[in-house]
Computed example of a mutant assay.
Amino acid sequence: MSIDRAIAAEAAALRAHYVQTVLPIWRGPGFNSASQLPYEAVGADDHTPLPVTRYRAMACARQLFVFSQAGEAAHAEQLFHAMRRYFHDRQRGGWFYSVDAQGAPLDTTKDLYTHAFVIFACAHYAAATGDRDALDVIGDTASLVQARFAAHDGLLHAALEADFSVPRSGPLQNPLMHLTEAYLAAYETTGEPGYESTLAQLTQAVARNFVHTPTGAIAELPIGSADNRLEPGHQFEWFYLVKRAGPVVLGSGLMDDLTRAFDFAQRYGIDPQTGGVCAALDETGAVKDATQRIWAQTEYLRALATRGRAEDLETLALQIPRFQARFLHPRGWYECLSPAGEVARADMPSTTPYHLATAYAALPI
């Protein structure tokens, strides 16, 4: 069997588990049919929802993406309307971070990560259904982000007070990465050229402020910050996004940086025995956090498929069954493992199917 056919067969097994095991959780016990919101997490053994202390807009948006991509328009429509009903701040604009168990605003922080996922999810929902209201949400939210979250040097604050008056957090890598992902999706759905220029400006700002020059890796905090960290999973995630954006972000130089960052993350961040991707490295490549989170494993799969050299495909053919054996099980998945394979987090969050879906979509058919 050729390596392409072997990878396609392995990928088919991952997709079958996703369709037969993962999606039914979030249509059924993981979904509160009364509020039409996904629970934050369910138990690994019986899928019982964990006690409700909050519902997050980001979690609802990720589920909206998942079911839009899966072609389940009716369920996606419920999630779209619930997201707008509970999390949209009609008085001040933007989106609340979370609501409480009764659906009342809980954390009213204006969080860039949340706003990015609203744009991203609505872009996929609009592409799948043609919903005009979703297109309006994309445009309104993107305009608000650029106007209200602006910081210095083309960057954006990670979090603001509810009325946008005072920053709670300065620029951070992760929200900026997901905003890049969101603007890519918005451009692909709407075709509006403004997203191209915004993407170019955003990635240039990231390159100026977050790239660790010796390795090319994109740090979690602006370069020069105390106790900074380099996450292998985010190098793989950025590699995919910048590769996909192509000429739009060429001027940033990130493709060259991330080619080096890919090699750095692969050399120092992957357990050679198990293929497990660690959570974080320091700037020398020493392991800073050895926890193996499932999302980082999926980003490694997607990045290998995206780079697609012969040696990447050989690694991918080995890595998929390793991932399947370590992180998937008949009732779902393990969210976090220790390097020795001990379960570090047993419950299953509603946010993780997004990572599975995006990774599996990049694998050969």
Rank of each mutant, 00 (worst) to 15 (best):
C60T: 14
Y39H: 15
M58S: 11
A57I: 00
Q20E: 15
P49C: 11
G28S: 06
A57F: 04
E40P: 08
A34S: 03
V52A: 06
T48A: 11
M58C: 10
A73N: 12
F65Q: 02
V42T: 05
P38D: 01
I25H: 10
R27D: 04
G28E: 06
I25T: 14
V66H: 10
Q63L: 05
A74I: 01
A76H: 01
R56S: 08
V19Y: 07
A16F: 10
M58D: 00
Q69H: 14
E72W: 05
G30L: 06
Q69V: 11
L50A: 10
L37D: 05
V52E: 05
G43L: 07
F67N: 04
V52W: 12
I25V: 15
H47G: 02
G43E: 04
T21C: 15
P38L: 00
T48E: 09
H75Q: 09
Y39L: 10
E40I: 02
V52K: 07
A61G: 04
V22T: 13
H75C: 02
I25P: 11
H81S: 09
E72G: 04
L23M: 03
E77P: 00
Q20M: 13
L79F: 06
Q20G: 12
T21R: 11
V19Q: 15
T53N: 14
C60Y: 00
R54T: 07
H47T: 06
T48W: 03
V19A: 10
G43I: 01
A73P: 07
E40V: 03
V22E: 15
N32W: 09
L23Q: 10
T53A: 12
S68A: 13
F65V: 06
G28N: 10
P24W: 14
A61Q: 06
E77H: 06
L37T: 02
F67G: 00
S33F: 09
G71A: 08
A44H: 09
F65R: 00
Q69W: 11
R56F: 02
S68T: 12
A61S: 14
S68D: 04
R54D: 08
Q78G: 04
Y18I: 07
W26C: 07
M58R: 15
A34W: 01
Q36C: 13
L50W: 09
Y55F: 14
G71P: 10
L50Q: 10
A73R: 10
L37Q: 09
P38G: 01
Q36R: 14
Q20D: 15
H75N: 01
Y55S: 05
F65S: 02
A61V: 07
A61E: 07
F31L: 11
A16P: 11
Q78I: 01
R27N: 05
L79T: 06
D45W: 08
A76W: 01
N32C: 13
A74R: 08
E40F: 08
D45R: 12
R54C: 10
G30Q: 04
Y18H: 15
A44Y: 08
F65D: 06
A34Y: 04
A16L: 07
P51Y: 04
L37G: 03
Y39C: 05
Q36E: 10
F80L: 09
A61M: 07
S35A: 13
